[in-house]
Amino acid sequence: MPFTFPAAPHADSQASVCAACHAAGTGCLLDVRQVKNNRSTKFQITQHRLLACAFESFTPGSIGDPDPTRTFKAYREQGYKNLEEAGKIIFPSDFELTTAQKGKVDGDVFEMLEAAALWNVAAAWNSFMDTGVWSHPTLKKPQGAVPTPKRKVAIIKMPRGGDTTQLLTPSARAEYQAFEASLSGRGMELRLSTPDILGMRIPDPAPPGFEIFDRPIPNLTIASQQRIERALDTVRGAFEGRHFLFAIAVKTSVRSDRLYQALFEANVLKYILGYVLRGPAIRFYAHMESLEGADVRGRYSAASMTSLLTGGTPTRAIDETYQALKPLETSQRVLDDLPTYVL
C-alpha cells in the first residue's frame, strides 16, 4: 500500500485498497460500535496496521524514502489522512475519529518512527565498522569514526513497562539484585528505569543472533515492527554495565507536571549503571518534537546527582535536550555521537 494513493479509477486507488484490506480483516480501523463499554468511541486506530499501510515500502528518513527530508509530523499527518479516508470509504455513513483518539496513539507512532530510523543508524555504523567503507546515501560518515568490529552498536526500542535488568548478564544482574535486596531489607527501593530507547555496545565476540543489528529496517510492515519490538528477546542476558552507551526518552511533548519523570530516570540510571554495576558514564538524552507548554530546557538543565556526589566537575542529568523534528536529522545527530564514546 502506498504512502500516498493514486486517484481513482487506478487499480491501486485508496477505495480499492482499503476495501480489500478491510475485507481481509487487516484494516487500520477497529469497529467497536457494538461493544458495550459506556464510551462514545465508535472506531479505534490499529496502530501497527496504520504504520504498515503508510510505510509498506520505506522507513521514514532512511534508504528508500522518496523524500527523506520530511518531518516526523509530515509522515504522521499523511498516515492519519490515509486513515480518515479509509474510514470514509469503509463506513461512509457513520465514520468519525476525534483528535483525542489520534492523540492516544500519536506518541507511540512517533516513538516507532524514531526507533526505526535509529535502528538504521546502527546498521549503517556496523557496516562501516566491519568493512571500513562508508556507502550510506543519505547519512554522512561521522567525524572521527575509526572502523573496528569491536565498536559495533545495537540501538534498541525498549517495551513499555519492560525490565532493563533483563539485558544484564547473570553476574551483572546478581550484582543489581544484591543492591536491591539490601535496600528492600530497610523498606526502600531504587529500581533501574526503562528508557524508551537504549544504545548498547555489542559485546565482542557478539553472541548468536546479534547479526540482526547489521541489517537495516527497510519498511514498517508488521514483520519489520515486530523485529524492532522483539529485539529485547535477542539481547536478553548479554550485557554488563560497561556496554551501556546512551538512553533516550522520546516524547512528542511533555506536560509541566511530568517534566521531572525523565530527570528521575536519568539520575537513577546513571547511579545504578555507574556505581552499582561500575560501568562508564551513560549519556541520557531527551528527544522531543515540541518544547512548548513547559520550561523544558530550563528544567532539563538540572545537574546530575551522581556528578555532584563525586565532587568533580558537575554534569547534567539529561545530557542533551534535542528537538527531534526530522528522522534524518535525528539519525545524523545520534550517529555523530558514536565516535565520541571512549569505551
Results as ranks from 00 to 15, higher is better:
Met1Glu: 03
Thr4Pro: 04
His10Val: 03
Ser13Pro: 00
Ala15Phe: 11
Ala15Tyr: 14
Ser16Arg: 03
His22Arg: 08
Gly25Val: 01
Gly27Ala: 05
Gly27Pro: 00
Leu29Gln: 01
Asp31Met: 01
Asn38Gln: 05
Asn38Thr: 07
Gln44Asn: 12
Ile45Phe: 09
His48Ser: 15
Ala54Asp: 14
Phe58Pro: 12
Gly64Arg: 14
Asp67Cys: 08
Thr71Ile: 11
Phe72Tyr: 12
Ala74Thr: 15
Gln78Cys: 15
Glu85Met: 10
Ile89Gln: 10
Thr99Gln: 09
Gln101Phe: 04
Lys104Cys: 07
Lys104Leu: 13
Asp108Ser: 13
Glu111Trp: 04
Leu113Phe: 10
Ala115Asp: 14
Ala116Arg: 08
Ala123Asn: 08
Ser127Phe: 13
Ser127Lys: 15
Val133Ala: 10
Trp134Arg: 12
Pro137Arg: 08
Leu139Asn: 05
Lys150Arg: 03
Lys157Tyr: 10
Lys157Val: 00
Met158Lys: 02
Met158Ser: 02
Met158Arg: 14
Pro159Arg: 01
Asp163Glu: 09
Thr169Asp: 10
Thr169Val: 01
Ala174Phe: 00
Glu175His: 04
Ala181Phe: 01
Met188Lys: 14
Glu189Ile: 12
Arg191Tyr: 10
Leu192Val: 07
Pro203Phe: 10
Glu211Met: 03
Glu211Ile: 09
Glu211Asn: 08
Phe213Trp: 11
Arg215Leu: 14
Asn219Pro: 05
Gln225Gly: 11
Arg230Leu: 08
Ala231Met: 03
Leu232Ile: 15
Asp233Ile: 01
Val235Ile: 15
Arg236Met: 11
Glu240Ile: 12
Ala247Trp: 10
Lys251Met: 08
Ser253Glu: 05
Ser256Ala: 10
Arg258Asn: 14
Ala266Thr: 07
Asn267Arg: 12
Leu269Glu: 09
Tyr275Trp: 12
Tyr275Asn: 15
Phe284Cys: 11
Tyr285Arg: 07
Gly293Val: 02
Ala294Gly: 02
Ala294Trp: 00
Asp295Tyr: 04
Arg297Val: 00
Arg299Ala: 11
Ser301Thr: 04
Ser301Asp: 15
Met305Lys: 02
Thr306Asp: 14
Leu309Val: 05
Thr310Ala: 06
Thr313Phe: 01
Arg316Gln: 02
Ala317Asp: 04
Ile318Asp: 01
Ile318Leu: 02
Tyr322Ser: 04
Tyr322Pro: 05
Ala324Gly: 02
Thr330Pro: 06
Gln332His: 15
Arg333Gln: 09
Leu338His: 13
Leu338Trp: 13
Tyr341Val: 09
